[in-house]
Design a protein around this nucleic acid. Structure first.
Lengths: 204, 204
DNA sequence: AACGTCCGTACGTGATAACGTACAATCGTA
DNA sequence: TACGATTGTACGTTATCACGTACGGACGTT
């Protein structure tokens, strides 16, 4: 039984000469989607030669063009850039320390650490009054990832982006998992949740 | 079905015209830090007139200068852009979702048909003696996809590649979903399953 | 081979991003 | 009032971004 907390570690301190890095990332994403330069050009509205130059780091695109490229890759620009800014290191913590600090929250990892894993399934048990992650240190998943949670038993409240969503047994919710979010159990009975985090496009 | 779609400040039709928005955000951040254009110019290495034009949305900066501006505001570029990309979607499905009924097999789709969806979560109820993957169903999934199933309640048997795996309540299993497989319920009580199918990298 | 079609990239041109300088407006201080 | 100091912005020049076109190379057919 292990508690997984996926934390994006931003490199705010480091220098960010990302112009060449984002080009490599764009090329990797494009090839991962099996798109040619002209395919992405049509999807994004950016010319193929421009894409080639950007991918090789010869030019720095404007925000407008970069946003169109990201949209062609079905990403927002911030998501695209975060792929390079973050180390997106997955920190796996043992349930021991986590359970002591976040009493009433038990996490059970269901998906094994297989290579090429793109979905992470975990089961959560929230005692009355317990919260996942915590408001101050919210678990944010990899950029581009999306989470689906199902309330198996009891009631829970999803707090995301300043909004609260009351969930009853049988309810499910889908949202972008790279946003700050956490679950609360404000009822008098334990709650069972099942969380599925689907990773964004990634290469090797 | 009662699905609730909650959106932040979406860009309406989906296309994101963020060039003017980020300018307003930059100005707000700069003024919040009590910096003049020349102050931020020195901190970021971008000329003050350029900053003025960017803040008013007259020009779209390149990624290189946008990153320098963000650094001058002590932010990464993705952090700066994220503040304006509020196309975060939260889809809440109250109660039971869209169902398909087979003989003794009820399927409930939990993930909404959102663009960019890469994982499909479904809930299955198997009556005693029932099997999944009945005649006229998509027997196997896309090549490269992987499936994780969790037995929420009852017992079930996974038959895959000529092998049988007995699963009890709380058990879970992960396997390559492009293999022929199906679930059976050989017990005397109904079984509740939750299946997660993570698609491979999409193409075109 | 010879063909058509795709791939990524080099080239030349128009558009514009980004700079340095200079200006009107505002504020504080003498 | 008058002055220096700052504010944000208009102007003109240079650098370069972004486009359309066109080229050499790789692949599959005929």
């Amino acid at each position: 039984m292990a508690t997984t907390v996926t934390e994006g570690r931003s490199s705010a301190d480091g220098t960010l000469v990302q112009t060449p890095a984002v080009g490599v990332r764009i090329r990797a994403l494009r090839e991962a989607m099996d798109l040619s330069l002209r395919d992405l050009a049509q999807r994004s509205g950016v010319s193929a030669p421009m894409l080639s130059q950007v991918e090789r780091g010869e030019t720095s695109p404007t925000l407008a063009v970069a946003a169109r490229i990201a949209a062609g890759l079905e990403l927002t620009l911030s998501q695209l850039l975060r792929l390079d800014e973050d180390r997106h290191v997955v920190v796996v913590r043992k349930g021991e320390g986590r359970k002591r600090r976040r009493a009433g929250h038990r996490v059970e990892e269901l998906t094994p650490p297989l290579p090429g894993q793109r979905a992470d399934v975990s089961r959560h048990r929230l005692e009355p009054g317990a919260v996942t992650g915590g408001p101050g240190d919210p678990p944010i998943h990899e950029p581009g990832s999306r989470e689906t949670a199902v309330v198996i038993d009891g009631m829970a409240t999803l707090v995301i982006d300043g909004q609260r969503h009351e969930l009853r047994t049988g309810d499910s919710v889908t949202f972008d998992a790279d946003l700050a979010h956490h679950f609360e159990n404000n009822s008098d009975d334990p709650a069972e949740l099942l969380a599925v985090v689907a990773a964004g496009l990634r290469r090797s």
